[in-house]
Design a protein around this nucleic acid. Structure first.
Length: 221
DNA sequence: TAGGCCATCTGGTCCT
DNA sequence: AGGACCAGATGGCCTA
């Protein structure tokens, strides 16, 4: 999924500029018209979505998309002006399209770097080997648990009280504890994929502490 | 088929 | 002013 997407993502971008018409002179753009144009030509495929999305997308927030989305704040027609038309002074449509494409590219890069960070995090978190890779939420949850377990170990070595308690959770229990545990401490910090990872962390860390082994690796867990 | 996860686009807002 | 960040929307892929 993600793998295939990444490869194909970037190269298309430059073509899209070519789609843009030469009508630089007018600042006023009829979004409704652009939008309808777009909706007709949709292919539905991820790649082609990218292809055409930029030709359309750069400009025309697809109508359906635009309608249903509530504005966040102070957005009384800031973009769409309610009438489906928008006047933006100073820059041409072509210029705006270019900016949008550049912005898309930056956002893509940003998300890729974020994903790289997730990947690096996955590599350093001890977890039971799974066929599929950890999802993002699982990665974050495990990381948090791991930190908590390490903190416990440190505190224990100092002779202090453990700040976190891990309750052993039955594998079968598929409760909805996840995400709702806003406190993040004390309590069944069950992660989605491996309910027992918490105790695994804890047990392994404690074992390390007892045996004097300092390093912890995924293989150990 | 429904639901989960994800990539991408997009526009608003914040920050430098 | 421009880039970074954020969150909503959308659609694809995969699995139960």
């Amino acid at each position: 999924m993600s793998g295939s997407d990444e490869g194909s993502g970037t190269p298309d971008q430059d073509h899209n500029v070519a789609f843009w018409p030469e009508d630089d002179e007018e600042i006023e753009v009829d979004y409704m018209h652009l939008g309808s144009e777009d909706s007709g030509g949709k292919t539905g495929d991820a790649k082609s979505r990218q292809d055409c999305s930029d030709s359309s997308g750069s400009e025309g927030p697809s109508p359906s998309r635009k309608q249903s989305r509530p504005k966040r704040k102070g957005c009384s027609g800031s973009v769409n002006g309610g009438s489906g038309r928008r006047r933006k002074s100073g820059i041409s449509a072509r210029e705006r399209n270019l900016r949008r494409l550049e912005s898309n590219e930056r956002e893509r890069m940003r998300m890729h770097s974020l994903n790289d960070a997730f990947e690096q995090l996955r590599e350093v978190i001890p977890h039971v080997k799974m066929e599929r890779k950890l999802s993002k939420i699982e990665t974050l949850t495990l990381a948090k648990n791991y930190i908590m377990a390490l903190t416990n170990v440190i505190c224990e070595m100092r002779g202090e009280e453990k700040p976190y308690t891990f309750l052993d959770v039955d594998c079968g229990s598929n409760s909805s504890t996840n995400g709702n545990n806003s406190s993040g401490e004390q309590g069944p910090e069950e992660d989605m994929a491996e309910p027992n990872n918490n105790s695994l962390f804890q047990e392994n860390l404690e074992h390390r502490t007892m045996t004097g082994t300092s390093s912890i690796s995924i293989q150990d867990i």
